[in-house]
Every structure is written in structure tokens, then in C-alpha cells.
């Protein structure tokens, strides 16, 4: 009994203090996956804010965009052109979603909308598979100008190893989250988006065009998805099994609140770092593979303490 308590409450911390360089390595790896979790959750937040739709297809959009990019490069297009065309495809997707799902279903219930996004994901799986084939593809990292190789840093009398790819992913994710954060808080379109999120009828009454906002938001979510797909795909490979990373978004959203951009970022980091630390220092003793559920545990623990999430919008109630 005492042994178990020791293994849980003392051992791991002794281990951390004995090998601080290893701890830094684990934290870094957690940080990198955290930023990618944040990116995928960001896609959800954008769409949820603007249309109150929980987009089940977000995970598929990540895969679909990455698959389109790789597929176009494999067809022999230069990488830059393929990238440009993929962006174009994501725009066409956004417009189609607006035309075929959002517009006809405006004012329908939440569950109808969710069903519609489930339909969308089946369509994307089928369509993507039909055009680009079902087998896993590898992301042509070099063609896209993403750095490979790794760097060594010495810390605490030891050293850590940083993959350039990871560094690029983290930087890209940071840039994206910050840009979008500024965009939504400072610009005309960003204000309009938050207005739509608050009260879409009132937004209509001041002349904000919902259609335009929806297209912008789905397109942005598509681009965020593409970015996630490129880096995640580079770390493993590109196939529809990638969509399970969408499962990581849910605990991040629970933590960060469904409507907050800083929220998903902090939430992503907490989940990413938390699950990495747990796996390395506790999980291994439990047989490993804890990443599947630890994220949900962390989210539930936080939910217990802070029911609105870390950054959930205050629900304004007046009497």
C-alpha cells in the first residue's frame, strides 16, 4: 500500500528532480502536441461561435485538406501551386457548406445541425477516398519547405533534443492563434463575428450579412484545419485515421470554453503537457498508453472546479 502511494506521490517527483533535462524534454513534447490540439480546437471554436454549430466534421476537414494537398503534389503539381489550390478547395468547401447546409437549415434545432455536420463528414470521407484513394500518404515535408532534422540544447547538465519539425509546428500554431485572436478582437469582420455569436438577429438588423460571416468562418476553420493537417501529417502520415485527433479537441474545449480563442490555447497546452507528463512519469508504470483517456480526466477535474471552463464567456444574467 505504502509502496503504491510512494509510486504515485513521491517517486515521479524525485525522478523529475533527478533528471531535470528529461523533464524539460517531456514538457517540450507536451507543449508541441498542446499547440496542435489548440489548433484543432480552434477550428471548432470559430464555427461554434459564428453559427452555434458543433462541427463534427472538423476532424475530417483536417484530413481532407491534408489529403488534397498531398494528392495534388503527387499528381505532379509544384508544392506552392498545390498549396494554393488546396486553399481554393477549402474556400469552395466553405461556400458549399453555407449554401447547402447553413442557409437551408438556419433556425433549425441544434441536433439537426449536428446531424448535418455528421453528414458532411461522411461525404468528405467518401469524396476524399474516391478522388485520392484510401491508402495512407506521407506528407512531402521537404517540398513544402518545412525544416527537418533536429537540434540539441544543453540544459541542467544534460541535453534536450528538439525536432525542427516540432519547432516549426509550434511556431506556426502560435502565429495562427495570435493572428486570429487579434483579428477577432480588433477588426470589423471580427467584431461582426462576435456580434453574430451574441445575437444573430440583432446582427442582421445592423446589416451584417450572416452568409458572408459563415463563409469566412468556415473558410478560416478550413485553413486552420489544413495547417493542423500539414504538421500532424508530417509527424505521422496522412490518412483518415488522423481524424481521431479531433477527439483531443473535446477535452480542450471543455477546459477552454467553446467560445474563447485564448481559452483553447491555454486549454490545449494544459492537455498536451498534462498528458505527456502523466504518460511519462505515471503511465509507464501502469503499462503505458494513457494518452487516450488522461485528457478527459484532466478536463473533468477542471470542470469540477470551474464549471464554465477556464475562459468560458460569462453568462450575463439580469433580473
Amino acid at each position: 500500500m505504502l509502496d503504491i502511494l510512494h509510486k504515485i506521490f513521491v517517486g515521479p517527483f524525485i525522478e523529475m528532480s533527478h533528471a531535470p533535462d528529461l523533464l524539460v524534454q517531456v514538457l517540450w513534447e507536451g507543449f508541441v502536441s498542446g499547440t496542435l490540439y489548440a489548433l484543432i480546437a480552434l477550428g471548432f471554436v470559430l464555427i461554434y461561435k459564428a453559427s452555434s454549430v458543433f462541427n463534427f466534421a472538423q476532424g475530417i476537414m483536417v484530413v481532407f485538406s491534408a489529403l488534397t494537398l498531398v494528392g495534388l503534389i503527387e499528381m505532379g503539381l509544384p508544392a506552392w501551386l498545390a498549396l494554393l489550390m488546396t486553399v481554393g478547395v477549402m474556400y469552395v468547401l466553405a461556400v458549399s457548406v453555407e449554401r447547402t447546409i447553413l442557409l437551408p437549415l438556419v433556425n433549425q434545432s441544434q441536433s439537426t445541425m449536428i446531424m448535418a455536420t455528421i453528414g458532411l463528414s461522411s461525404f468528405l470521407i467518401g469524396f476524399g477516398g474516391f478522388i485520392f484513394g484510401g491508402e495512407p500518404k506521407s506528407m512531402p515535408v521537404a517540398l513544402l519547405g518545412i525544416p527537418t532534422g533536429s537540434m540539441q540544447f544543453s540544459v541542467f547538465n544534460g541535453h534536450i533534443n528538439i525536432q525542427n519539425l516540432d519547432l516549426a509546428a509550434a511556431v506556426m500554431a502560435l502565429v495562427m492563434v495570435t493572428t486570429l485572436g487579434i483579428f477577432f478582437s480588433k477588426t470589423r469582420i471580427g467584431r461582426a463575428l462576435r456580434a453574430v455569436a451574441d445575437d444573430h438577429q440583432a446582427a442582421l438588423s445592423v446589416g451584417i450579412t450572416l452568409k458572408q460571416i459563415w463563409v469566412i468562418v468556415w473558410f478560416t476553420a478550413g485553413i486552420v484545419g489544413l495547417t493542423t493537417g500539414i504538421f500532424w501529417g508530417a509527424r505521422s502520415d496522412v490518412s483518415f485515421s488522423l481524424q481521431i485527433i479531433a477527439l483531443k479537441a473535446l477535452p480542450v474545449l471543455i477546459l477552454g470554453g467553446f467560445t474563447s480563442i485564448p481559452g483553447v490555447f491555454i486549454g490545449g497546452l494544459i492537455i498536451g503537457i498534462g498528458e505527456q507528463l502523466f504518460e511519462y512519469y505515471w503511465g509507464v508504470q501502469m503499462g503505458g498508453g494513457t494518452q487516450g483517456w488522461v485528457a478527459y480526466m484532466i478536463a473533468l477535474l477542471f470542470l469540477w472546479v470551474m464549471p464554465q471552463g477556464l475562459f468560458g464567456e460569462k453568462i450575463i444574467e439580469r433580473i
Partner: peptide, 22 residues
């Protein structure tokens, strides 16, 4: 509109600015 319908999570000034959207 009836009931004022301000955007609650926007500041007063941001509310005014949304009015200039068009």
C-alpha cells in the same frame, strides 16, 4: 429592435462600431 438587443459580450463602443458594418 424591441428589447434593445445589444451585443452583450461586446463593449458599448464595439456595439456602436458594428452599426457601421455596411
Amino acid at each position: 429592435m424591441e428589447g434593445r438587443r445589444c451585443f452583450e459580450h461586446l463593449t458599448v463602443e464595439e456595439n456602436l462600431l458594428t452599426g457601421a458594418f455596411t
